[in-house]
Design a protein around this nucleic acid. Structure first.
Length: 749
RNA sequence: UGGGGAUUAGCCAAGCGGUAAGGCAACUGGUUUUGGUCCAGUCAUUCAGGGGUUCGAAUCCCUUAUCCCCAUCCA
């Protein structure tokens, strides 16, 4: 776990500490209507991760309440994903459909309580009656049916006596609720459809809002964690569980921001479109952000888990850079996999002064990866090098082979170009070169300095392999439609050449092809006769980047965004009158006057306190700031205008500092105690005597010499640090004004 | 005539009145038989804008702006 906790874990710890629950139970509740993607991985990591961190457990539950879209195939994909990521669900996989009988009972209970009714409006009418975002809805006339009638109708719905859409069961909540979700939400609908698990047993199916909270309750879930778009549904969640008067404890819902990633799409609809439309090759196409896709591509669970850890959990919609994911997979594979040589785009090199062949022992791992293992590299007079690794007229800073620049063949000899052979179109066909016999890797006595080492394979010994190179599926960072697809997202290289040990020894399934990237033996299409490797991710490439950057001289058009100021609603006449009085008679500033004048509760609170203490400005400040907050957050407040007046009096008389006043005020909020009593009992009278404070400052200065140095070097922000430290030493009782002055003096001397 | 969330660097993200964490990206320099890795360093006088309270504000108050979600018998 990282050092700072996310808000969900903070909540879980609070609940545990408060004894609200003794064991944490979470759940991962996908609907089995599509393949899970990296966004699900985030959710899995959160739900299973929290359960693991707090010694609880996590259930895997299929939210299968809509028989028309769901399938057992997806259930398997979901199970695979969780397992592959390394998590275990508690007991067996759960299904909301297992709870259908129980959920039906709860529906009957609700009807009996008069809290749900059978509505017989048609779909269109229901929509119409619901109203709009700005207009209240109105209740259906069927809402007046008696409990008996509702019970009978519900029973008959269940028995299949009605056609789809003839009736629905709705909760009786509030058709004019500001939250649209609360306008008598549907609980059950009739669907004469075959369910992949319950078959034809049911012809009514519970809606998400009804089934989900009850499934959570039935399983004893404590923290029901979902994505932000369900925030509006939380009210129903709470309503259903409360309305049923269930025995506690009950679960509560919390929401986090779903994962967004640039250059990729995450919606089920769009993924389905890609798969069904054959824009990709199935759900496990390595270009897809599905778990199956990443798995097929060669990603490791560790990399994905680490990614989930790195991106954090918060409530702000965000778009994570794919570079972050790519970093995670490189970071993981770097320390794990063998390095081998594979030439993607071969250029033949004939070494004119070499005869025969030999085998060179070469480690699978570079010096900085502490792993054992090596293989034999065959060497001969005809080799392939990467076409990119030779340039006839190189740009400045090019380290590789040129007619005038020798290069090391990695693990072998230094090579010098002698002649470039081209075809009739001027394309280089072959290079004639010489090697330096005394430059063999490990016992080089040639004294030749080269700028780089390039990879190569012996033409005669190399194996031909197929490489599948993947680029971003989309060409734009925020893809919307099929038109944004990158037409070049897949390159199949049929004739790459790899050193023989990879095929013959199979030291691993994942490799780093030196200087290229990480590759994975395709788990499905790979055969010994026709080896196939998927490119997982390229190596970081600072050379290519440098070359590319030279071309377009990009201008950083940083336009400062212009913020449009909106208009403030005008004040009413009476508010205006108050405002005038505050400004002109009481000398308040316009901001405070404005706040007070516009809020009847605040202004009357203010006037009352003013009757007790004639300190208009101080009172106004505290009422408009502190009191306002409490009034906003709580319906009833425990403190009185008289007490506020008492508090302000102490501030005015400098008995206490404004810092202490906040502390006192906090306690008044808690229990309505008199401020004078709080100050008395806690001994909060402020310390203003410089003779008491000065030694404390000296002590702080003595203990923080490093910060003193930084301060003197110009970091004036540190001033607050010193003041804070001194204040802390007196438990906040030192008079901050005095402390400020004294610290200032000491630091400038 | 709405309600609910959110806003800290190019991208994530801590921070809860007293020194603007960390990661990715980017950029220097060093090591390197991978233009990889690794190592050292740089990268927010400022937290969406404006005002207020305070000795002190990213944090408290007011206000404006922007973005997301809600009117499926989907989840």
């Amino acid at each position: 776990m990282s050092e700072s906790k996310d808000f969900l874990r903070v909540k879980v710890e609070e609940d545990l500490k408060a004894g609200k629950y003794t064991k944490i139970i979470t759940r991962f509740p996908p609907e089995p209507n599509g393949f899970p993607h990296i966004g699900h991985a985030k959710s899995i990591y959160i739900n299973f991760g929290i359960a693991r961190d707090y010694q609880g457990h996590c259930n895997l539950r299929m939210d299968d309440t809509n028989p028309t879209t769901e399938d057992m195939r997806y259930v398997e994909a979901l199970k695979d994903a969780v397992t592959w990521l390394g998590f275990e669900w508690n007991e067996s996989v759960r299904f909301a459909s297992d709870y259908f009988p129980k959920i039906y009972e709860y529906a009957v209970a609700l009807v009996k309580m008069g809290k749900a009714y059978v509505d017989s409006l048609n779909e269109e009418e229901i929509r119409e009656y619901r109203g709009t975002i700005t207009q209240p809805g109105r209740r259906s006339k069927y809402a007046q049916r008696s409990v008996e009638e509702n019970l009978e109708l519900l029973e008959r719905m269940k028995n299949g006596e009605f056609k789809d859409g003839e009736h629905v069961l709705r909760a009786r909540i509030d058709m004019s609720a500001a939250n649209m979700k609360m306008r008598d939400p549907l609980l059950y609908r009739i669907r004469h459809a075959h369910h992949f698990r319950t078959g034809d047993e049911w012809c009514i199916y519970p809606m998400y809002d009804f089934a989900h909270c009850l499934s959570d309750y039935i399983e004893g879930i404590t923290h029901s964690i979902c994505t932000l778009e369900f925030e509006n549904n939380r009210d129903i969640y709470d309503w259903v569980l409360d309305a049923l008067e269930l025995t506690p404890p009950r679960p509560y819902q919390y929401e986090f921001a779903r994962l967004g990633m640039n250059y990729t799409v995450m919606s089920k609809r769009k993924l389905l479109e890609l798969v069904d439309g054959k824009y990709v090759n199935g759900w496990d196409d390595p270009r897809l952000p599905t778990i199956a896709g990443y798995k097929r591509r060669g990603y490791t669970p560790e990399a994905i888990l680490n990614f989930c850890e790195q991106i954090g959990i918060a409530k702000a919609n965000s778009m994570v850079d794919v570079a972050q994911l790519e970093f995670c997979i490189r970071d993981d594979l770097n320390k794990k996999v063998p390095r081998v040589m594979c030439v993607v785009d071969p250029l033949e090199v004939t070494i004119e002064n070499y005869e025969g062949e030999e085998e060179i022992e070469a480690s699978y791992y570079p010096h900085d990866v502490p792993k054992e293992g090596s293989r034999k590299l065959p060497f001969s007079n005809t080799i392939y090098i990467e076409r990119d690794d030779f340039m006839e007229t190189p740009p400045e800073g090019y380290y590789r082979l040129t007619p005038n620049q020798s290069v090391r063949l990695k693990g072998a000899y230094i090579l010098t170009c002698k002649e470039v052979i081209k075809d009739e179109n001027g394309v280089i066909k072959q290079i004639k070169a010489v090697y330096h016999p005394d430059s063999r890797s490990g016992n080089d006595t040639s004294g030749i300095k080269v700028k780089s080492a390039i990879h190569w394979v012996s033409a005669k010994h190399a194996k031909q392999v197929e490489l599948r190179l993947y680029e971003r599926l989309y060409k734009v960072d925020m893809p919307e439609s099929l038109e944004d697809l990158n037409p070049d997202s897949l390159h199949v290289i049929k004739n790459a050449f790899i050193e023989p040990a990879v095929i013959e020894q199979k030291p691993d399934v994942r490799f780093q092809f030196e200087r290229q990237g990480y590759f994975y033996a395709d788990p499905i299409d790979y055969t010994d006769a026709k080896p196939v490797f998927n490119k997982i991710v390229g190596l970081k490439d600072s050379w290519n980047k440098k070359v590319e950057k030279k071309e377009p001289a990009e201008k950083p058009t940083q336009t400062k965004k212009v913020v449009v100021e909106g208009e403030v609603a005008p004040m009413s006449e009476s508010e205006l009158k108050l405002y005038d009085r505050y400004i002109n008679e009481l000398n308040l500033n316009s901001e405070i006057s404005n706040i007070l004048a516009r809020d009847a509760k605040l202004s009357s609170f203010y006037e009352e306190s003013l009757n007790i203490l004639n300190s208009p400005v101080s009172l106004a400040n505290i009422v408009a700031n502190e009191v306002a907050r409490e009034l906003k957050q709580n319906e009833v407040i425990k403190f009185t205008p008289t007490q506020i007046a008492g508090l302000v009096k102490m501030i005015d008389e400098e008995t206490i500092s404004s810092k202490i006043a906040k502390q006192v005020f906090e306690q008044m909020v808690q229990n309505g105690e008199n401020p004078e009593d709080i100050v008395q009992s806690k001994g909060l009278v402020q310390i203003s005597d410089p003779n008491v404070i000065e030694p404390l400052i000296d002590e702080v200065i003595a203990k923080n010499q490093d910060n003193i140095a930084k301060y003197k070097a110009g970091n004036k922000n540190l001033f607050g640090f010193f003041v804070g430290a001194v204040l802390k030493a007196t438990a906040g009782k030192a008079n901050p004004k005095i402390v400020n002055q004294l610290v200032e003096q000491k630091l400038s001397s």
